[in-house]
Design a binder for these strands. Structure first.
Lengths: 237, 237
DNA sequence: GCGCCTTGTCAGGAAGTTCTCAGAGTTCGG
DNA sequence: CCGAACTCTGAGAACTTCCTGACAAGGCGC
């Protein structure tokens, strides 16, 4: 793990969001370069080999589409994940998913951004082994990223978007206790101002849907957090 | 062990807490520099190579988040363990667990602070072999930090948060006798005003849970304290 | 516009945890 | 062998955390 998963370029003028993205993407295993505007972005792109850009559509000097075009004129065909305000859902954005590109609306959850980045990289990095198994598995529970579908023991289970994100986060961190604060920070939008009680609510919803029959997979660590783990032979906890 | 485990920067304006942290972190094997405010912190950070900062969010000159940003603008990407009052757990703390950072609420126990520091260092020091074995072992007793789980001879044992902290402290100091005062100082919050009888109570709880079958590992040194140690062939106590 | 699904809040009750206390048990010096 | 000091543990009160059902508000598709 000495070499990063991929090299990203974050182009975002709001300092808080830029740092939030930079920190968490680095932590997710990417090499990250960050720029507050289009010109800085161009300079960084010349200095480093960029695999994917995370780009705000609104930038102080030029818009994200212009930066993207310039990037592609100069270098290789770098895919882009655009960030945009929820209400300014431009027509330009709608045509993006036909190429390798994609977009997420602000405010976003980090879970969502990382998942989208991985999806775009998977689609575009043809040189990589096209293993194509986008399914997370824990015991007989499966979560398919592409189909956006959850199954337990082969049975399809209908979950809401938030439930899906929560379950994905739990499965990505199977066998590790996650605090409610951690879950809130990763699964909910960065501007969410609510209480941690909502995590309890969604854990409860999820349990009702996936944990009612068979060994329960979601476990409460009282005073610490929650953990999703494989069942064991002899339970004494 | 002549070279310190890591170099820490403690930024905390309350003198008592700053000295408590400084002393015990030095004792835990870290090199420690301490500052009562943001400006002093910045100066110290320029003079020394800091691996991690322990930072109060409320400081006289600027808040901990500002200090953190300035630190990161100037130097390398230093992870931070924030200290915060228990009730101010709202706004800005959101998003802290997404990167390598973490926080503990005041009043804290030293056990907790040291454990969190180690956890953050483990997560962020990518150059280190990601061996990822976060498990403490003494004889057939195991304590897993990630899963927050205790096993004896393979059997899972359910312990409460305080029991977990006490056992971790005993295991970290295996084969060393710890006085009740020492245990109280490390495992309980620094503002705890109770009697040492509580240590006896929790030792009793732990014994009931982990020491009922097999060789006992927890031993009383009458008039001195307690020690957790490997079993021997002939006991002479 | 009208339902239906989803999201988020809240409050009551259940369950688990923390801490104290007192009496029984143990050790040790004299 | 006795008494003093120390230790162990059960009982229980106060507190915290967690779970879940009820519900209001908002969004989305039809």
């Amino acid at each position: 793990m000495s070499t990063a998963e991929a090299t990203l370029l974050v182009v975002e003028d709001e300092t808080n969001i830029r740092e939030l993205l930079t920190t968490s993407l680095k932590f997710a295993g990417f090499e990250v370069h960050a720029a507050p505007d289009g010109n800085t972005a161009m300079r960084l792109a010349e200095e480093h080999d960029i695999d994917l850009a995370v780009m705000d559509v609104m930038l102080p000097d030029m818009d994200g589409f212009t930066v993207t075009r310039k990037l592609r004129d100069h270098g290789r065909d770098v895919p882009v994940l655009f960030l945009t305000a929820r209400d300014s859902l431009d027509d330009k954005l709608k045509g993006l998913t036909v190429g390798g590109d994609d977009y997420v609306t602000k405010p976003f959850s980090l879970e969502e951004v990382v998942a989208r980045i991985r999806a775009v990289l998977r689609r575009t990095q043809t040189f990589e082994p096209a293993d194509e198994d986008t399914t997370l598995r824990v015991a007989d529970l499966e979560l398919d990223e592409d189909r956006h579908e959850v199954t337990r023991a082969g049975r399809v289970i209908d979950v809401s978007p938030t439930e899906f994100k929560l379950l994905r986060y739990l499965m990505l961190n199977a066998n590790r206790v996650l605090s409610k604060a951690q879950i809130l920070d990763h699964v909910w939008d960065y501007d969410f101002r609510g209480e941690m009680g909502i995590v309890e609510s969604y854990i409860s919803y999820l349990r009702r849907k996936i944990d009612t029959e068979g060994e329960p997979l979601i476990h409460t660590k009282r005073g610490v957090g929650y953990v999703l783990r494989e069942p064991r032979d002899h339970e004494s906890a």
